[in-house]
């Protein structure tokens, strides 16, 4: 894949999907995210990069309120999804997470069959009126997860019987099955081998056509390969945010440059 060709695709203007303004996150007394503002566009892959512990995953988890499950975590500031504050008291995180799906670092298929793994989301959200519709959703999702051909003959096999790369694509298919508008990916390739990584990256590029994708990665090459926009986090601060090509070729902040050239991280 040619990085330059990817950059050209990202030129046309898109609407803002998620707008975060002055977000602060605290873990107990620790100030984990400091005053971060960022706008995430529709039909775009946005990459969060930075050294480990810089807060990129924490920030990602704020976008679908997964941090709610941690007792000591406190979020301040505004995060708007299509102009609506997702931390508004009236918002049900369950409904939000149906719109903003998530794929995790370690593939985490449920101890169920491949079919039931994918059908889990549509079932709880009531997306299918009958078995035929559900079958269709499952098939489409598995196709979109680029794993249909590998599993179509063994949909009853347990999800845990797949290889690591297949498991991660299954988890992506599972996330896609709930028809989200935004897909958050927390280092989706860190547990995978290079071949599986390549497959997943290809898939991410494909997913951009339908969704707004946010990916956390600590591989700069990966960010350069798959994203149109890149945000660089350091010690809880958003240091720099812009077009991927610009960040990698002409960083404005010296810290970004140090990281990209391998001096910190």
């Amino acid at each position: 894949m040619n990085d330059m060709s990817r950059l050209e695709k990202a030129v046309d203007t898109r609407q803002t999907k998620i707008a975060a303004k002055n977000v602060q996150v605290y873990y107990g007394d620790a100030h984990a995210i400091k005053d971060v503002s960022v706008e995430i566009e529709d039909n775009t892959v946005t990459a969060f990069i930075g050294p480990s512990g810089c807060g990129k995953s924490t920030f990602l988890r704020c976008l679908n309120r997964m941090n709610d499950t941690i007792d000591i975590c406190r979020v301040e500031g505004d995060i708007l999804l299509d102009g609506e504050d997702i931390y508004d008291k009236r918002v049900d995180p369950v409904q939000l997470r149906a719109k903003v799906g998530m794929v995790f670092q370690k593939p985490n298929p449920f101890p169920k069959s491949i079919y039931d793994n994918v059908a889990y989301g549509p079932r709880i959200h009531g997306l299918a009126r009958n078995k035929a519709e559900l079958d269709e959703i499952v098939e489409n999702s598995l196709r979109r997860g680029a794993i249909w051909d590998e599993v179509k003959d063994r949909l009853d096999a347990p999800g845990t019987s797949l290889s690591g790369g297949q498991q991660q694509r299954l988890c992506i298919a599972r996330a896609v099955a709930t028809e989200p508008e935004v897909l958050l990916m927390d280092e989706p390739c860190s547990a995978l081998d290079p071949i599986a990584t390549a497959q997943v990256e290809e898939l991410i590029d494909d997913l951009r056509k339908r969704y707004s994708v946010v990916i956390v990665t600590h591989s700069m090459q990966q960010a350069a390969r798959v994203s149109q926009k890149t945000a660089f986090f350091h010690l809880g601060n958003l240091v720099e945010f812009g077009e991927t090509g610009q960040i990698f070729t002409n960083p404005k902040d010296p810290r970004t440059e140090s990281y990209i050239t391998g001096r910190i991280g």
């Binding site: 609407q15 529709d42 299509d82 508008e181 339908r210």
Partner: peptide, 8 residues
Amino acid sequence: QSAPQSRH
């Protein structure tokens, strides 16, 4: 929004 496939 331009998300015609979304059912949410």
